[in-house]
Design a protein around this nucleic acid. Structure first.
Lengths: 118, 118
DNA sequence: TTATATTATCGTACATCTACGATAAACGAT
DNA sequence: ATCGTTTATCGTAGATGTACGATAATATAA
């Protein structure tokens, strides 16, 4: 019998790959990730996921409950965050467990630095 | 006779105001600024303006020349950057001199930190 | 199997974004 | 006053974003 194991493999991004990434690619990556942050609801989702401790991973329903939007709208925002590279999800029974990509915030900051100061 | 004085009053933003800003406002400001970065052309404009030394301020034509877009399209991107708080412009004869808002990049980074880690 | 819970997707309706050419507006120069 | 330069705005067209209810899909539970 399956217990409430909210599992998300800790998928991470290595900030060092940026050392080998050309400026044009950096700009595209930055604008793509920025699109993810370009809505208050998505900023809030990132905040929630970044807040949630590893042993208590966040399932979709928790996020829906925390936002003043319909379930289908939240699902769309989660999709945008997945497509723009901020989060990943894993099916856990009838539910889906969402996690923030490890190190993505630092990665984003570095992208801002590199793209604007290069 | 007017010489080529590319003047832009150095308009700046004080990062300390964030200390008195509530979370909800931070999220709205972050998503608004992020919208500004959500296109490669606008990232490039920010990079150019951040690169240009103060004594050689950037006029609109320079930016148009640096991008593979029509003048009207660049003008629209400049408008978005103005509306989202990244840059400001000053009329200088028939031309317009654009400048990045002082300290806006650090301000943006701090917004990312506060909005995601709060 | 059937029912229940959870989440994605579909269909729809507006709004906003993106890009362009054409035009207007503002100013300096002649 | 007229011309040329520079930049914003308009009009248009197509793409994308946003929000919702309804429905489908998936897995567990009964």
């Amino acid at each position: 019998m399956k217990v409430d194991n909210r599992t998300c493999k800790p998928l991470s991004i290595d900030i060092r790959v940026l050392g080998k990434t050309d400026t044009e690619t950096c700009k595209r990556m930055l604008s793509e990730l920025s699109k993810g942050l370009a809505h208050p609801a998505r900023v809030e989702i990132i905040r929630i996921l970044n807040h949630t401790p590893l042993e208590e991973r966040c399932i979709c329903g928790d996020i829906v409950g925390a936002l003043p939007l319909a379930q289908s709208s939240v699902s769309q925002h989660l999709k945008v965050l997945k497509e723009t590279g901020w989060i990943h999800g894993e099916i856990d029974g009838p539910r889906v467990c969402y996690c923030i990509v490890g190190g993505i915030i630092e990665y984003y900051m570095e992208l801002v630095r590199r793209s604007t100061q290069e």
